[in-house]
């Protein structure tokens, strides 16, 4: 019991960090500009990829709307975590697995823009950095993990879960890195502050990442029952879904 209290205390102490996106003004102008520059090409790739899907396969429009809306919902829900503070999920893995690594760069950017403008959650100067972490790095991770799982013959549901879980975690790893680079510790430099940021971010995020993984699997289950045409068009889960095609 005593140990438990200690453990809880340990988690409580460093937990007073931001729930997620880097707040307005917390990156010095140079870094803010750097991340904006880094993000722009990906946003452009996102526009290109959405356009391509919409013109080539207009029947997928509702699904794109859904992928964006899913990120919208999940990033609005601040969920209590074991560290005693709250954070929220990203919801970008779903769209990435459906449409590839770049579509969510645009959709995630839109979600972040909305939150920065209307909620003062994140910020305009830090929008570039936040886009890179949530809408670029996270999806890249999800895409790689899922591709790897596919190749090694892992069950698709486990692949989806792992992709969404690691996507969510990796978003925060990148956020920590961005903060650490801009705010290296006085003694020890960026590596020390990276560990500091990571301890807080990653621990808070683990249970949430599990939830995001579970919910992403749930949505895929629903889609594979109802939106069979779309899943076929996307070439998604073709082999493992064959049992369902029989009806």
């Amino acid at each position: 019991m005593k140990n438990l209290k200690f453990a809880v205390l340990f988690f409580l102490l460093p937990s007073n960090l931001f729930s997620m996106h880097i707040m307005e003004g917390f990156l010095p102008p140079l870094w803010a500009g750097f991340w904006w520059l880094a993000a722009l090409p990906f946003i452009w790739l996102g526009i290109v990829s959405v356009k391509k899907i919409v013109t080539a396969k207009p029947e997928l429009k509702p699904l794109i709307a859904m992928a964006g809306a899913f990120a919208f919902v999940l990033s609005a829900l601040k969920i209590p975590s074991v560290t005693g503070s709250s954070s929220h999920m990203t919801g970008v893995a779903l769209g990435t697995l459906l449409f590839g690594p770049f579509t969510m760069a645009l959709l995630g950017f839109i979600v972040l823009l909305f939150q920065a403008l209307l909620l003062a959650h994140g910020g305009l100067t830090t929008l570039g950095a936040n886009t890179i972490s949530m809408a670029v790095a996270g999806p890249m991770m999800a895409y790689s993990v899922f591709t790897l799982c596919r190749k090694s013959g892992v069950n698709d549901r486990i692949g989806i879960f792992s992709a969404a879980f690691l996507c969510d975690i990796f978003t925060y790893v990148v956020t920590s890195a961005q903060l650490a680079l801009a705010h290296p510790a006085a003694d020890g430099g960026a590596a020390v502050s990276l560990v500091k940021f990571l301890t807080v971010f990653a621990v808070t995020q683990i249970p949430l990442a599990v939830i995001e993984g579970l919910l992403t699997v749930v949505v895929f289950n629903i889609l594979s029952s109802y939106a069979i045409d779309e899943m076929k068009v996307l070439g998604f889960m073709k082999l493992t879904l064959e049992e369902q095609y029989e009806k």
Partner: peptide
Amino acid sequence: FGGADAKAEDIVKESSPGYEPWIE
């Protein structure tokens, strides 16, 4: 279970003392 966004400043200050958010 605060989102604790407001306390972000403290943590950043710990790493780079004297840093002030340059824009609101």
